[in-house]
Amino acid sequence: MTREELESRVERVRQELEEASAGRYPIPKLIAVTKTHSAEEILPLAEMGITDIGENRVQELLTKLPELQDRFQIHLIGRLQRNKVKQIVGDVCMIQSVDSEPLAREIHNRALAAGRRMPVLVEISPAGEEQKGGVPFEETEAFLKQIAPLEGIEIRGLMAVMPLTEDQDYLDGLFARTRGLFDRIRDKNLSGIVMEELSMGMSGDYRLAAAHGATMVRVGSAIFGPRG
Score class of each variant (00 low, 15 high):
30 L>S: 08
46 A>I: 01
23 G>T: 04
114 A>W: 11
122 V>K: 05
188 K>C: 11
152 G>Q: 09
32 A>V: 01
153 I>L: 12
29 K>T: 09
140 T>A: 15
221 S>Q: 04
40 E>Q: 09
2 T>K: 07
28 P>R: 07
92 V>H: 04
38 S>E: 07
119 P>R: 01
1 M>F: 13
205 D>I: 00
20 A>Y: 05
144 L>H: 06
170 Y>Q: 04
81 Q>P: 13
156 R>D: 09
17 L>A: 10
82 R>T: 13
205 D>S: 02
89 V>I: 14
80 L>M: 08
150 L>W: 08
26 P>R: 03
226 P>C: 06
208 L>N: 04
54 G>Y: 11
215 T>L: 09
84 K>D: 11
213 G>M: 06
152 G>K: 01
158 L>M: 03
122 V>E: 10
217 V>K: 01
193 I>T: 01
83 N>L: 08
72 F>M: 02
149 P>N: 11
113 A>D: 14
129 E>C: 08
123 E>P: 11
36 T>M: 07
42 I>C: 14
158 L>R: 00
44 P>C: 06
222 A>K: 00
219 V>L: 07
101 E>K: 15
101 E>F: 15
39 A>K: 00
10 V>K: 03
165 T>N: 04
20 A>S: 15
37 H>W: 10
142 A>N: 10
61 L>M: 12
57 R>Y: 14
130 E>Y: 13
61 L>Y: 00
132 K>T: 10
185 I>P: 06
43 L>T: 10
110 R>H: 11
194 V>L: 15
